[in-house]
Design a binder for these strands. Structure first.
Length: 264
DNA sequence: ATGGTAGCGCTGCTA
């Protein structure tokens, strides 16, 4: 099986690119973030035309997440159902059963500025996500929680850690919140497959200043699997081709797709 | 033409 996650930075602006990528790469499941559309403007046809079922959760022009599956798509749920944290609902989480797999597509808040209300809300959001795992997930089922975490887990997951002094995405509190999720029983699949010391590919580059060309990026799009998923995970990679401008009229997303392949 | 982000939606915000 092949599972992918991709922050597309607007599904409507990226329709042709997403369709092309799906038809060439044929993942069994694709998790999307930043669809940036409402339920009414969600282009479901671009997936059904290729033989996929899909479910989308969008509340307007910001955020928005979706699940796209060839393995079936059942028990779809939007957002937080159990958390008592004070969280403004922003369409950042969708979860569903794709065949035997429990798949979660998440778009963690950016945080903007360390110490700001947005930064604190990011940490609360991650705490709520852990609560949801505790309340909703079954550890006997293979589970994949993937998406744009807006956190670089290690110093080597950004192009120059000294450039990130005082910035979000690399602070201890963000990493502790991520580790707290892992403590529930999740594994960063890239690190598990290639090692804690491995140089892992970036998944995001700023649009500005030719960052992609200079490889000034970050690894912030993560695939977290529980033990049942880790046991069947074989390889993980990013598709840098999808970040290149190419011949399409639209720009690429600022994120690459991340793909994990399993033994069955 | 020697610059240079992109998407939302229409002014500035978000990332």
């Amino acid at each position: 099986m092949k599972f992918a996650t991709w922050n597309v930075n607007s599904l409507r602006a990226r329709t042709e690119r997403v369709q092309h990528w799906l038809s060439v790469n044929t993942p069994d499941v694709l998790c999307l973030q930043e669809t940036k559309c409402s339920q009414d403007s969600y282009p479901a046809d671009i997936f059904s035309d290729l033989g996929y079922e899909s479910a989308h959760y969008g509340l307007g022009q910001w955020n928005g997440v979706a699940l796209v599956s060839k393995l079936g798509l059942e028990d779809v749920e939007f957002g937080f159902l159990h958390s008592n944290e004070p969280i403004t609902e922003e369409a950042r989480l969708i979860r569903g059963k794709c065949g035997k797999f429990d798949v979660w597509s998440a778009y963690i808040p950016n945080g903007r500025i360390v110490g700001s209300d947005h930064y604190e809300a990011k940490l609360v959001w991650l705490k709520a996500l852990k609560t949801e795992l505790e309340m909703r997930a079954d550890q006997t089922v293979p589970l994949l929680l993937c998406g744009d975490f807006n956190i670089a887990p290690r110093d080597s997951d950004v192009f120059d850690i000294e450039m990130f002094a005082g910035a979000t995405h690399v602070t201890e509190r963000e990493r502790l919140a991520l580790n707290s999720l892992l403590d529930w029983g999740l594994f960063d699949l890239a690190i598990q497959l290639y090692g804690e010391e491995a140089d892992l590919p970036f998944t995001w580059w700023d649009y500005r200043g030719g960052s992609f060309h200079k490889n000034l990026g970050m690894r912030i799009d993560l695939m977290l699997g529980n033990k049942a998923f880790l046991d069947i995970a074989e390889k993980l990679y990013v598709d840098r081709e999808a970040r290149k401008k190419g011949s399409e009229t639209s720009s690429p997303s600022d994120h690459t797709p991340v793909v994990v392949e399993t033994k069955d």
